[in-house]
């Protein structure tokens, strides 16, 4: 994967790109093992979206904003939360209610041309080449929130495949109007953020499209590392890198112990 080293870590850049797209007053959910997601939500709260509301999916803590990024399930979040909800009550709005959440941010083993998500297995389910962790709330968050983001810490042909081997989170399904035709609420993936660029989905076909490429990344490199044909606009934008103010707030108010640079450096160029 071609990557140009920057003065900020990959995890910091992904958090900044996600935070920029969040709006004040929105409701979000953060799952297990979600350092970048926590950082993005708290960065948005610290800058332009002070009333963004987020809840730890497993732990039920709301808006824990301590300046230290902890696993969302950790008990330490309780002391810095605004409320602590119990999961058997939360399941109503997580697993059943339509459009309670404005958005969720999900990682994946694989994603595809229409932004479907797979965290279950690579290869045939009965005898997988790679057994992944499973679906947990991804099905519900992809299916029921108003939109979702796909956050990939790797961008290569293993992760960006023509069709995911197992759909555990429905994106735009087979494109066009197939998602709502299947009876799912309006929604689906809005952006895909990766170490190479930012991608969106063309409104009619719902196929993945290049929105911007990060500094130093060429379209040929992205094509070489994507297992399907991306839609490419006539003029390709350059991703606006995190600016000094964004990085200052991120490092001084959100991730004061440097979890993101420690856990999510830029991948080594190949």
């Amino acid at each position: 994967m071609p990557v140009v080293p920057q003065s900020f870590a990959m995890g910091e850049m992904l958090a900044v790109l996600l935070a920029r797209d969040m709006a004040d007053g929105e409701k979000a959910i953060v799952g297990t093992n979600s350092d970048i997601q926590v950082a993005a939500c708290n960065l948005a709260r610290a800058r332009h979206a002070p009333h963004l509301w987020w809840v730890s999916g497993p732990g039920g803590m709301t808006n824990p904003t301590e300046g230290i990024i902890r696993p969302a399930a950790d008990a330490e979040n309780i002391a810095v939360a605004q409320a602590v909800m119990d999961l058997p009550l939360m399941i109503d709005f997580i697993d059943w209610q339509v459009h309670f959440f404005d958005f969720a941010i999900l990682g994946a083993l694989q994603t595809d041309r229409f932004g479907n998500i797979n965290t279950v297995c690579v290869g045939d389910h009965a005898k997988p080449r790679l057994r992944g962790p499973g679906t947990v709330g991804i099905s519900a968050l992809c299916g029921l929130s108003k939109r979702f983001y796909i956050m990939m810490t790797r961008h290569d042909r293993g992760a960006f495949v023509p069709k995911v081997d197992f759909v555990c989170g429905a994106g735009h399904m087979t494109g066009g109007s197939s998602r709502t035709d299947a009876g799912l609420p309006e929604g689906g993936p809005r952006l895909v953020v990766t170490p190479l660029g930012v991608f969106d989905f063309e409104p009619a076909s719902k196929a993945m499209r290049v929105r911007s490429l990060h500094e130093g990344v060429t379209i040929d490199e992205v094509r070489d590392n994507t297992g399907f044909d991306l839609l490419v606009p006539d003029k390709i934008e350059r991703t606006l890198a995190p600016d000094a103010e964004e990085l200052f707030v991120l490092r001084r108010a959100v991730d004061t112990t440097g979890v993101l640079p420690a856990k999510f450096p830029w991948p080594k160029a190949n």
Binding site: D95, W96, V120, H125, A126, T135, S139, A140, C142, G143, L144, F166, V167, C168, G169, A170, M173, R179, A182, G183, L184
Partner: peptide, 12 residues
């Protein structure tokens, strides 16, 4: 009763 969320779970 849960919503059908368009996944491959019912297949496997």
């Amino acid at each position: 009763l849960i919503p059908d969320l368009g996944t491959d779970l019912p297949k496997v």
